[in-house]
Simulated scan of single mutants.
Amino acid sequence: MHALIFFSDLDGTLLHSDNSLSNTTLQAIKKVKNHDDLFVPISSRLPESIQSFIPCEAPIVAHNGAMIILEDKIISYTIPTQTAYDICSYCNDLDWNIYDGNNWYSTNQYFKDHSIEESYIGKTSIKIELEDIKKIQTIHKIVCIGSIDTVTSYLEETYSSLHITRSASYYLEITNIEATKSNALKTVANHYQIPLENTIAFGDYYNDEDMLEMAGVSYVVD
């Protein structure tokens, strides 16, 4: 039986600023596993993007907790398609993005920083029109990139049933109200019958805050 679970955010926490993972960190992760403890990457990234850095079997937590991948099952928390359409319509002056598992859809408008985002994630998004959102049946996360201060207050007031958080000053992430890192931490810990006081979490930004409060021991990176 596992004694401890280590949860770590990726961007700004485990990864270097050049989007790389050091050999020292990889060795530390292997050491955790050799002690029969668990290391769980917990990120806003897509599952395949997480696995490209940390090639390991489940568990992993993707899309800020909207997808929890365990050995024998996948737990998903989604956003209704019509709600996603309404949000993206309101945010149509921003670079809106929709995530469905490993699928990434983005506005067909041109945003100069979008290619940087694709390079950062290591995947090319599928460009769609606003009306195409209505064809997407499963939506795990919406991300709006740009001058998000202009839309944040409205979205928080209008969609109180959703979880809305910043993961950077220009990056607004929207998920199901149950899709939080703290809920994912608790779900994984319960699955492995490990008490919360035996969980350790690492993070760096607002979307990590609830996880850091939930864990038995927490660290915020410099």
Rank of each mutant, 00 (worst) to 15 (best):
N176R: 06
D18I: 06
I116W: 10
E197L: 02
I136P: 02
L21F: 10
A28V: 09
L162Y: 08
A201S: 09
I200V: 15
E71G: 01
E118D: 09
L162E: 01
E118R: 01
S52W: 11
G122L: 00
S52Y: 13
S52I: 11
G146S: 04
D149S: 15
P55V: 12
N92D: 15
H63R: 05
H163R: 07
A3W: 07
T175D: 05
K123V: 10
D204F: 03
R45K: 08
K30S: 06
A184M: 08
L15Y: 07
S161D: 15
E129F: 08
S106M: 15
G12S: 04
R166D: 00
A215T: 13
Y154T: 13
I194Q: 04
E118T: 05
G12H: 05
L46W: 07
V61N: 10
V220S: 14
I194Y: 09
I128H: 05
I126P: 00
K135V: 01
N103V: 04
D222S: 14
L155W: 03
V220F: 14
I116F: 13
I194L: 09
E129K: 03
N19A: 04
N34E: 11
I139T: 03
E209M: 06
I68S: 00
D132N: 12
Y110N: 14
K33C: 01
C88L: 11
Y90M: 04
A179R: 10
Q137V: 05
V151K: 03
L162N: 03
F39I: 01
P59S: 13
S119V: 00
D210R: 00
N97V: 12
S169D: 11
N34R: 10
S89P: 05
D95A: 13
M1E: 12
N64D: 07
V221H: 12
T199F: 06
V220C: 14
S169T: 13
L26N: 08
E209Q: 09
I177K: 15
L185C: 07
Q51T: 13
S169R: 09
F53T: 09
E156I: 10
N19P: 02
Y120C: 00
A201G: 07
E197G: 00
N103E: 13
P195H: 01
M67E: 12
A28F: 08
G203E: 02
T152W: 01
E71S: 09
